[in-house]
Nucleic acid binder design. Structure first.
Length: 950
RNA sequence: AGGACUAUAGCUCAGUUGGUUAGAGCGCUACCUUGACAUGGUAGAGGUCAGCAGUUCGAAUCUGCUUAGUCCUACCA
């Protein structure tokens, strides 16, 4: 083995071997365990968030597999309708190819499939590099044949059950992509804008109570006045009560529209008069519905003023008799130009009263970034309220559990107040809606045209399919069961559904998780007909941010590709990666500067295991993670530590059979580390079960570094190197070194698969094992009988004595190469016993040439002092110790003890404390006080001794 | 507007049903090429647990308020 840890060399070939042997595939077992991967966008690439979530899933899966369960980690990708279509359209423009519309639907879709083929491999490559042990044999795609069938089946069933309907509704319209989007795909941003006030002339000579012949309305969107259907006032507003039922005249178009009374209006806000545009505002739509107002659409699909306004009755039926032409001077203007022009025209007609600055929330499409236009269109909807009920119940009863728990609140709040879900998208890439229309506009839903004709007993009249596709999230909502073969009742479905845990970020909680719950519980029932949950536990990870707590994003230029942390990347390449293909190229310079400052030498190689270990170490629940490069480095060093520890162990065990100890009993050191190992196994297993990957990692780190490397390896040296040791003792030590290492490799494997497997392949030989791979070995279980208090006491004592001497050495600057004599004073019979057993080890590890126990009658030489319990460890001062330094050191310790004594005395002097606190607590305090007092006394004596010697 | 979360060492974070001498990693200081490891070893310094008030014998931990920050949901034209 190489003396330094070179992750790339060992990681690159291992995965291939695992995969070739098909060790990721489920293996029959009594108990099943499954995780469905949140399917990443097929054409995307993995970012740190994925690396994080995948690491956690892989750790859980590897653990379950080692625990002998029939384990499936279902892999797959999502077709990501709008995102993918957007990328492909951009590519067409870049390659000077005809745009989508000219190309036509079929040709375009072919282009998308081509793109999927050429770019879809990125993710799978990354996942392999991350060591993700997914079952590649059953990889799925949300648009593969079987999945498409599942989507159709689900849609048709829901339609037949009345849970999907079609209707003309006001929806969020993306004016760039010309499609409806769901509420969730709209992001609200606060922006500075204006509020205009203008006059609406009253018709028929009416006047307000204060004598005006007009009403004043306030609006942030004056351009929509062309499509107004009413002016609304509050029913109790005395100012306008007499005008309800009367009319105003819409400027420029001359239509008369009614004044209606509606509770929605806040009389305190503005003038108390609201212009009402049901076809272009969600609140106005509601008002319109309540008052059966007609609706006027004045915008094209790109939000430009139409030639003729389209008119609809309140129920959504077109009503051509109400249609009207729009003023020529406005026709064709986009909404912002129209706004300017109309405000100017209002001013010219003396209708404008004023304009104020106004802070408003602007809804924008999350993909296009453009302001959403509420638009009246025919769309498909899912009755979300009905589907949500079983999911809510399942969380209430605990059938589904959130980790961390607080997400329940968010879940309930959202689920209990659901609007119907708009699932149709005016895109081409996606699952086309299985609905057909005849020339009269009658609707037929079925698998395909032929089955529709049969189902509805249609003759051969012409039918045409709905042009729309389904929201991507409609298909991914079926992910947990459609991947397992549904609608067929496959064995896989029976074995692996419900799944055990879903690991995902809260960013797609509503998009995906909530909808998956709804769909799954509707379609999947157990043998008693009870709805099945999609997963028993939902583990929600935090977001990975950069070191300043900023969200990682391409436009901020602060993303780091997980693979670059693994294999490293040069500065120039990193700069290039970050500053090209930006949506806003002008940011490139700033990003370059920032990157050069932050990574003057690029990013070094750290290896997958270090990355994974860092991610799990940071995975405490319910908290975002600010990425810290330093921690990654620290953990790479930890890997190096493990690597070198293994080199040491192997160098002493390679040529021996270490599968068994000798016939002689194990030494206390040997028993101690085995005892600690068993405690470690218990802790790590429990922490995994609680999803506390941070604690599991920390426990492993502590054991491997502080117990195994720092002590066990050092304590083995006297045995392995000294001529005095017997063959049996050496055999025992070799056995323990090798056995503990082998066990801890199994224990750490779920988090650090590569380094553990690599080392294990060597260690297994010394343990007489012939198994092929660590990943299929049994996960360690602890043995209570091996937890040994006696051995622990002895070795903890030994460690304290060694540390005491080192402490004196360190604080008094005595060279580590100087061998020191040590005297022990106040040694109890137990101390003396421990000394007899451990003396050689003290001499060796503390570099002590002689340990002498002084009886009470013997005078100790002038010494530096450290206490181990009541026993004094003395290092004589003759020759190497500075008296003043030692006095200062003693004083420091005495001061500390004084503070402790003070605090404890106060506590014990408090009658209420003594009266109320449990006896154990009081006893503990008393003990504390006694030992602190005696410790202080001892140190004071030493202090005085030095004084007198002066 | 409503809700949630966060505030602990210079930095990134642990701290479980209230009882600790409040921990880890990184950084810092000193010493050290000791036969696995300088991607190292040994030792050390460093904290009014955001602030205020309360409950309690006892609060980093429970309650209320304040401040700062993050996020979610909704939204007044």
């Amino acid at each position: 083995m190489d003396s330094t840890y070179k992750p790339h060399e060992l990681e690159s070939t291992l995965y291939e071997n695992w995969e070739r042997n098909n060790w990721f595939a489920p293996k029959k077992g009594d108990e099943a365990y499954s995780i469905m991967i949140p399917p990443p966008n097929v054409t995307g690439s993995l970012h740190m968030g994925h690396a994080f979530q995948h690491t956690i899933q892989d750790a859980l899966i590897r653990l379950a597999r080692m625990q002998g369960k029939e384990t499936l980690w279902q892999v797959g990708t999502d077709h990501a309708g709008i995102a993918t279509q957007m990328v492909v359209e951009r590519n067409l423009a870049r390659d000077n190819l005809p745009p989508r519309i000219e190309m036509g639907r079929e040709a375009f879709i072919e282009k998308v499939w081509d793109w999927k083929k050429s770019s879809g491999g990125t993710i799978t490559k990354q996942m392999r590099r991350l060591g993700n042990s997914v079952d590649w044999e059953t990889e799925r795609f949300t648009m593969d044949e079987g999945f498409t069938e599942a989507v159709q089946t689900a849609f048709i069933k829901l339609y037949d059950e009345g849970l999907i309907y079609r209707g003309k509704r006001l929806v969020n319209w993306d004016v760039k992509f010309h499609t409806a989007i769901s509420d969730l795909e709209v992001e609200n941003h606060e922006e500075k804008g204006f509020m205009w006030e203008f006059k609406y002339p009253l018709a028929d000579g009416e006047t307000t109570s204060d004598g005006n012949d007009y009403l004043v309305v306030a609006t942030t969107r004056p351009e929509t006045l062309l499509g107004d259907s009413a002016v609304a006032v509050h029913p109790d507003d005395e100012r306008y009560k007499n005008l309800v039922g009367k009319f105003v005249v819409v400027p420029f178009v001359g239509r008369q529209i009614p004044i209606v009374a509606d509770h929605h209006v806040d009389p305190e806000f503005g003038t108390g008069c609201v212009k009402t545009t049901p076809a272009h505002d969600f609140n106005d739509y509601q008002i319109g519905q309540r008052h059966k107002l007609p609706m006027f659409n004045i915008f094209s699909k790109s939000a430009e003023i139409l030639v003729m306004a389209e008119a609809y009755d309140a129920d959504g039926k077109a009503n051509e008799s109400l249609a009207f032409s729009l003023p020529e001077s406005f026709v064709g203007l986009d909404r912002y130009q129209a706004r300017k022009t109309i405000v100017k025209a209002l001013e010219e007609q003396n209708l404008l009263i004023g304009v104020k600055d106004h802070l408003l929330q602007v809804p924008k499409g999350d993909r296009s970034g453009l302001v959403i236009e509420p638009m009246l269109t025919d769309q498909w909807f899912v009755d979300a309220k009905t589907l949500a009920k079983p999911a809510i119940e399942a969380v209430e009863t605990g059938d589904m559990e959130f980790v961390p728990k607080q997400y329940e609140n968010m879940f309930f709040a959202w689920m209990r107040d659901l609007q119907d879900w708009c699932i149709s998208r005016q895109l081409w890439w996606g699952h086309r809606i299985p609905a057909w229309y005849d020339d009269e506009g009658n609707l037929y839903v079925g698998d395909d045209e032929a089955s529709v004709r049969e189902k509805y007993e249609l003759d051969d009249k012409p039918l045409h399919q709905d042009e729309d596709v389904l929201d991507t999230w409609f298909s991914s909502a079926l992910w947990t069961f459609a991947t397992l073969g549904w609608p067929e009742q496959t064995d896989r479905l029976k074995t692996f559904h419900p799944t055990d845990v879903l690991v995902t970020g809260c960013d797609i909680f509503f998009f995906w998780v909530a909808r998956m719950m709804m769909m799954t519980m509707h379609f999947m029932k157990d043998e008693h007909g009870k709805p099945q949950v999609p997963f028993k536990t939902i583990y929600i990870t935090g977001l990975i941010r950069d070191e300043h707590g900023q969200k990682m994003s391409k436009s901020k230029g602060n993303v780091i590709d997980p693979l670059d942390m693994i294999d490293g990347i040069g500065l120039e390449e990193l700069v290039a990666k970050r500053s090209t293909n930006l949506m806003q190229p002008k940011l490139a310079q700033k990003i370059e500067k920032q990157t050069r400052k932050e990574f003057p030498e690029g990013i070094g190689e750290h290896g997958t295991d270090a990355l994974r270990f860092t991610l799990t170490s940071l995975a405490s629940t319910g908290r975002d993670i600010n990425w810290d490069m330093k921690r990654l480095e620290g953990n790479r060093n930890f890997c190096n530590k493990l690597w070198n520890a293994a080199r040491y162990v192997l160098s002493h065990t390679e040529d021996h059979d270490c599968s068994k100890p000798s016939d002689e009993p194990l030494s206390l050191v040997d028993q101690w580390i085995i005892s600690r190992l068993n405690q470690c196994i218990t802790d790590v297993t429990e922490q995994f079960a609680r999803y506390r990957f941070d604690l599991a990692s920390q426990t492993l780190f502590e054991f491997i570094k502080n117990q195994y490397c720092d002590w066990t390896l050092e304590l083995s040296k006297p045995v392995l190197f000294d001529d005095n040791a017997t063959d049996s003792q050496r055999q025992n030590t070799r056995y323990v070194l090798s056995h503990v290492l082998e066990t801890v490799l199994r224990l750490a494997h779920p988090i650090m698969p590569f380094i553990t497997e690599t080392i294990w392949q060597k260690v297994k030989v010394t343990q007489g094992l012939s198994d092929d791979t660590l990943m299929l070995m049994a996960y360690p279980t602890s043995d209570e009988l091996l937890v040994n208090a006696n051995a622990e006491a002895s070795i903890e004592w030994l460690k304290s004595v060694i540390v005491a001497v080192r402490n004196i050495r360190g604080e008094l600057n005595i060279s580590p190469s100087t061998a020191l004599p040590v005297f022990l004073v106040n040694a109890s019979s137990q101390d003396e016993m421990f000394l007899r057993i451990n003396q050689r080890l003290i001499e060796r590890l503390a570099k002590v040439d002689e340990v002498t126990v002084l009886s009470p009658s013997e005078e100790a030489p002038l010494s530096a002092t450290q206490l181990v319990g009541d026993m004094k460890v003395l290092v004589p001062m003759a020759g190497f110790i500075d008296l003043e330094k030692e006095q200062a050191r003693l004083q420091k310790h005495i001061d500390k003890l004084d503070k402790d004594i003070q605090r404890v005395e106060n506590k014990l002097g408090n009658e209420k404390f003594v009266a109320n606190a449990p006896k154990e607590v009081i006893d503990k305090e008393k003990e504390k006080l006694a030992s602190a007092l005696s410790a202080k006394a001892e140190l004071a004596i030493q202090f005085d001794k030095i004084n007198n010697a002066d």
